[in-house]
Design a protein around this nucleic acid. Structure first.
Lengths: 224, 224
DNA sequence: ATTTTTTTTTAGATTCGCCTAAAAAATATC
DNA sequence: GATATTTTTTAGGCGAATCTAAAAAAAAAT
C-alpha cells in the first residue's frame, strides 16, 4: 500500500507522540505537524477509514497494528538515510534531519533494503537512535540518562535526545560525540550542574539541561 | 526557488521533447506525461506565469533560460541517483529509472553536490547518458549509432537509447554492456541485420532494431 | 452543579493538479 | 477557398490537504 507524504507524516507524528502518552490528542498533533486542529480532525477521519489508526471523535487517537508497522518503516528509512548522509556523504549531525524528512518518503522497499546492506546494517543513526530492521523490530539499546550515572563510573555516550544545531554546537565545543567516554567527577547541588571528564581529559562543567539530553551506557563493574 | 514535483516533471518532459523538436506541442506533452491535453494547458499557464516557459496559446511551448537550468538540475539529480543505485547499491540498469524518478525531486542542493563528489564526479549515468555538472553544463560525448559504424572497425559501446527491461535482457544475453568493444563483420541487406563480434568473441547476429538503439565511439584509425 | 475555559469538531472556502465535455482555433483536404 | 479533421483551449467539477470561523463537547474552575 502506498500513502501520501502527508499521511505518512501524520503516522510518524502519532508514533512519536505515543511514546510520551499512549493516547494522542488532536492539539498535540496539530502542534507537532505545525498545522491547525481542524486539519488534523479531517485527516484523522481518513486515517481511521484506512485503519491506520483507532479514532473516535473527542477521544484521541492510537495507531493500529498496521499503523505502527507503517510508522516503523518510515522511521527505518529516515534513520538509514541519516546514517548514509553522515557516514558516506560527510554531513554534520545537525544538517541531516531535514534532508531525511524528504528521503524517508521514497517508496521503494528494495532501495531501503539495499541501502541497509550497503551501510553495513547499522543499529543506530548518527544521534544514537535505534534503526528498526526490515521486520520492524527496534533494537533495544540499554541506556540511561547521564544524570543517573553515579560519580566516578565511566560510561559511553550512546545517544542524544536533542539534535538542534545549538546543542550540537555545544557538544562539539566540549568535544563530545557518540561513543565518547564520560565520567562524572562532581555534582553541584545549587544548579545541579555536573563536573565531568571527557575521554579521560581535564574536568569540565556542563549544565543540567545539557546532561538531561545525554544518554549513556555503563557496565556495573566499569569503574574506570 | 522550490517547485512541485508535478511542475518539475513538466519541465523535464519539455526539455526532453525539445531535443526532438524545438517547439513542443500540448499533445506531445500530454502523451509524454500520461495526462490529458486539457490538464497540460492548465499547467502551461502556470509555468508561463513563473517564467519557466515561453507559452502562447496554440503556439506551443519552449523553455526559458531558467526553465532550461531547472531541467538540467533535475536531469543531473536523476542521473547521479541512477549511478548511485547501480554502482553502489548493485541495482540492474532496468530497475533504476523508476526509483530515480522519485529521488530526482529531493530538493537539497548540497545533497546532490556531496553525492556527486562521493560517486567520483561521474560523467555519464549507467545507460551512458551524460550527467550535467553543477553549473548545468552537459559533457559532450562523441558517439554515433552502431548502424553507422563501418565494417571492420572496432568501437566501444557508449550508450543505449532504450532502457526497457526487454532490451536490457537481450543485451545481457549477448553479453553486451556499456564499454563493450563491438565490431561489425557483415551486413545483411534483406533485413538490415548485422553480424558483429563482442569483445573479439565469435560473430553473432543482431537485428537492425537493436543496433538502432546502440551508440558507439571509435577512433578514425582504430582498425582493430 | 453551574459557569467558564479549553479542546475538538463541523461548515464552508481555497489551492493544486487532474478530469470530461464542449467550444474555438489551426491545419489538412477536397 | 470552403469544408472536414485535428489540436488546443475553455468551462465546470472533483479529491486531497489545507485554512478560518463558528458550533459543540469535554474538562476545569468556582
Amino acid at each position: 500500500m502506498k500513502y501520501s507524504t502527508s499521511k505518512e507524516n501524520y503516522i510518524k507524528a502519532i508514533y512519536h507522540l505515543e511514546q510520551e502518552d499512549p493516547v494522542v490528542s488532536t492539539n498535540a498533533l496539530a502542534r507537532q505537524l505545525a498545522t491547525k486542529p481542524a486539519s488534523v480532525t479531517d485527516m484523522l477521519k481518513k486515517l481511521n477509514e484506512q485503519e491506520l489508526i483507532h479514532y473516535e471523535p473527542y477521544k484521541g487517537v492510537k495507531l493500529t497494528d498496521s499503523g505502527n508497522k507503517l510508522a516503523l518503516q518510515i522511521i527505518r528509512k529516515h534513520r538509514l538515510w541519516e546514517f548514509f548522509l553522515v557516514e558516506k556523504l560527510g554531513f554534520g549531525w545537525e544538517e541531516v534531519h531535514e534532508i531525511a524528512e524528504e528521503l524517508e518518503h521514497i517508496s521503494s522497499k528494495k532501495l531501503i533494503d539495499r541501502l541497509d546492506e550497503f551501510l553495513g546494517r547499522p543499529k543506530t543513526d548518527p544521534h544514537g537512535d535505534p534503526i528498526p530492521d526490515a521486520a520492524g523490530i527496534v533494537p533495544k539499546i540499554e541506556k540511561r540518562c547521564l544524570l543517573d550515572l553515579p560519580i566516578g563510573v565511566s560510561a559511553d555516550l550512546i545517544s542524544v535526545s536533542n539534535q538542534s544545531a545549538d546543542m550540537l554546537d555545544l557538544l562539539r565545543h566540549h568535544q563530545i560525540e557518540i561513543g565518547t567516554r564520560l565520567k562524572i567527577t562532581n555534582r553541584f547541588r545549587f544548579d545541579h550542574s555536573l563536573q565531568i571528564t571527557v575521554q579521560g581529559g581535564p574536568p569540565v562543567t556542563i549544565s543540567e539541561q545539557l546532561a538531561a539530553h545525554l544518554y549513556v551506557a555503563w557496565a556495573k563493574d566499569e569503574t574506570d
